[in-house]
């Protein structure tokens, strides 16, 4: 009798193990399947345009000419701008929260920064259309043109809707990512490091500079790359403020277009197969870029957060 019972439970055991295994396995399947689906749907476009797809700047659905360069340019410019703004600020937030703030204060500010990430992209976009863009057009862009107008980046008519607006909104959206990851890796720096620096008479900033930052450097780089990945793929907010014009202009004030934005705007309007396929290929390129970026970023973050090499200090 006892034999029979044991057999029953072990069958249930094996079943649970199998089911959970299949679910875990499905993540790998899902990723491969997503890549394949996109590649498959992009094939007609890849066949027709080949490598020229990413070097051509002509995007003309009427003449069946598709080149993705303007979108790649717009995506890269806005994302880089966002990174330039968000990386130092995000790092500053992380240092403040991790090294300076009292624990109660830390919880509140930490929660607020997380809320910044919880606001939906489309709400940022709405705010961008009615608050940010008019402000840029009337105050910021004329000011920049006046003082820094000798740089091509700040020339041209202030429109409000353009790469500057896109970059600014992206900066707000990726800041929480950069702050959160930097904080996580800084928290994994062993306290002994800090105490050693302080014991040698370092000021707080010197302690952060010599004991915390070098230690967390790799992980912070990873966090910044994750932020970049988010910026590259962010869709709605950028679509709503970037101006949606497939041009390559040097000025940050000029309307531009991003990869995700062209997909969002034109996907349901693609009237023939090649058009749709070209849009999927834009998505496929975006998928490839973010995949590689995330892959590298996770490697960096993992190498720090998962296995701190603090042991050799003790």
């Amino acid at each position: 009798m006892s034999k029979k019972r044991r057999f029953k439970t072990s069958l249930g055991d094996q079943f649970l193990r199998l089911v959970t295994f299949l679910m875990a396995f499905s993540v790998l399947v899902l990723m491969a399947w997503m890549g394949w689906q996109m590649f498959d749907a992009a094939r007609p476009s890849i066949h027709t345009f080949g490598f020229g797809f990413i070097t051509s700047r002509v995007w003309d659905p009427v003449k069946e000419q598709f080149g993705a360069l303007p979108f790649i340019y717009g995506t890269l410019m806005t994302s880089l701008l966002a990174l330039l703004l968000a990386a130092p600020i995000g790092l500053g937030v992380a240092i403040f929260l991790n090294e300076m703030a009292e624990s109660k204060f830390r919880a509140v500010i930490g929660f607020l920064v997380e809320m910044l990430a919880a606001i939906p992209s489309v709400v940022y976009g709405l705010w961008g259309i009615f608050v940010l863009a008019p402000w840029l057009r009337e105050t910021v862009e004329p000011g920049l043109a006046k003082w820094l107008g000798f740089v091509p980046l700040f020339q041209g008519t202030p429109v409000g809707f353009g790469m500057l607006a896109g970059g600014l909104i992206l900066a707000m959206m990726i800041l929480p990512t950069i702050a959160a990851i930097s904080r996580e890796v800084m928290a994994s720096v062993p306290n002994m490091q800090r105490e050693a620096a302080l014991a040698l008479g370092a000021t707080k900033w010197e302690m952060i500079k010599v004991a915390v930052l070098p230690y967390a450097k790799t992980g912070i780089m990873g966090g910044i790359m994750l932020g970049l990945g988010r910026a590259l793929g962010e869709t709605m907010a950028v679509t709503m403020v970037i101006g949606n014009r497939p041009d390559i202009l040097p000025s940050l004030f000029a309307p531009a277009y991003s990869m995700a934005a062209v997909i969002a705007n034109e996907f349901t309007e693609a009237t023939y197969d090649l058009y749709l396929s070209a849009l999927v290929e834009v998505g496929f390129i975006l998928f490839g870029i973010t995949l590689v970026l995330n892959f590298l970023a996770r490697l960096l973050v993992w190498s720090v957060a998962r296995g701190p090499k603090g042991g050799n200090l003790v």
Partner: peptide, 10 residues
């Protein structure tokens, strides 16, 4: 980290 619009396309 994959952009959510990619999921839409797939």
């Amino acid at each position: 980290g994959i952009p959510s619009i990619i999921v839409g396309i797939v």
